[in-house]
Amino acid sequence: MVKEIERAGIPVVHMCTVVPISLTVGANRIVPTIAIPHPLGNPSLTMEEEKDIRRNLLTKALKALETEITEQTVFEK
């Protein structure tokens, strides 16, 4: 899906846990996430702490969208 969105001309960031799959699938902007059943959360934390994680990850995602790239890039930080 990510490739088709990119192909249509819309920049897209892929947020996922298993990064190698994302690379194989052909995503260009990739943000690694927490875990498969809860990519943007962590049930062992409080709701507020979880939201912080989410804020943090989404900030990375926005940064990825604002960054010019020429090849597949994983935005770790």
Partner: peptide, 18 residues
């Protein structure tokens, strides 16, 4: 749906996967 997104003037997509 990418066509619809384009038509609706979407500038960027966040795609999440599990």
């Amino acid at each position: 749906f990418a066509k619809e997104l384009l038509a609706d003037g979407v500038d960027a997509v966040i795609l999440t996967s599990t």
